[in-house]
Design a binder for these strands. Structure first.
Lengths: 162, 162
DNA sequence: ATTCATTGTTACCTGTACTCACAATGAACG
DNA sequence: CGTTCATTGTGAGTACAGGTAACAATGAAT
């Protein structure tokens, strides 16, 4: 440790971990036959954090992807009846995304799967260390922000991912 | 904080960060017109950690991907003259992957790019915190191991990624 | 010699996200 | 009013990363 390029190394570890998370999560998803992909699962979970149905653009910003990607994800979820597109009467350009009952149900199972996957990944860490890691990651994520776009306007519905 | 599902959240942050790393790294790679993709860059860097040219299977294990993926990556790198496939006289099934001079040159630029990307990501953290994060990630990565396969036989050429 | 395991690869498919172009809507301003 | 411009979501196309399955070549074991 204290290698020549500690920061670069750190990025490498990050990548590796994420690949692992992805693989494990996928396994759990398949096993439970929920019929959704990891990215869709992510959108679904994100959806749950809003108090009122978000717009596509909100989700894009939140997920740190381009709006087009959200369209695809919502397509998939809607086809499986997990979410619903509802027009916004106040602004006919916007579409708001609502969780359906089935979506909420799926979400419950999803959380279990997620928890199991996380537990598997985090096994080597103790309680205290997890907290540390959590704080560090929070700092990182909330820090510079910014997907392909710049920064968020601020007055969103009810974010904060918690 | 101290939310209902801290571990799940943690995984979420991980994913988000990685997406960011990926995006930033890609941007750097394009800007410098190195003509390689992030995954190829990863393989290249990994290659540098071996004292003697590794086999395809070694790389697959190291990168935690299926051997087939390595084939594709090496194809790309070889086409750009960054690496060379050399047959192993001792075992005619194996192919060893060597860095070419051009590959080594690219590697130098790559490190700079990587460092810049990491710096950008890690900006919100202080020196002390980076060390902490580094240690935590190390523990995680070295912990349970295991790609699609199980565990590594141990006697690899010269691993340890550092 | 036959059988089995290793190694890399051919062929194909999925998931994810990106760019570009565009239609529909809304807002600003003459 | 009409013109112009920004916002919002989407169709079409592309790139990249990785996974499965089948296989040919080689090596090892019996």
């Amino acid at each position: 440790m204290t290698a020549p390029d500690p920061d670069g190394l750190l990025a490498e570890q990050l990548l590796r971990l994420t690949r692992r998370v992805h693989r494990i999560q996928k396994r759990y998803l398949e096993r439970r036959e929920l019929g959704i992909t990891p990215a869709q699962s992510r959108l679904l979970r994100t959806l749950a954090h809003y108090s009122s149905p978000p717009r596509m653009a909100d989700l894009a910003e939140r997920l740190e992807v381009v709006p087009r990607a959200v369209t695809t994800l919502v397509d998939g979820l809607e086809a499986h009846g997990k979410v619903r597109r509802v027009p916004d009467p106040a602004n006919r350009r916007v579409i708001r995304i609502e969780l359906t009952d089935e979506g909420r149900e799926t979400l419950r199972e999803l959380r279990a799967a997620r928890r199991a996957a996380a537990a598997e990944i985090l096994a080597p860490l103790g309680e205290r260390e997890r907290e540390q890691l959590g704080e560090l990651l929070n700092t990182l994520v909330d820090g510079p922000a910014g997907p392909p776009c710049e920064e968020r306007p601020g007055g969103g519905p009810g974010p904060v991912e918690g």
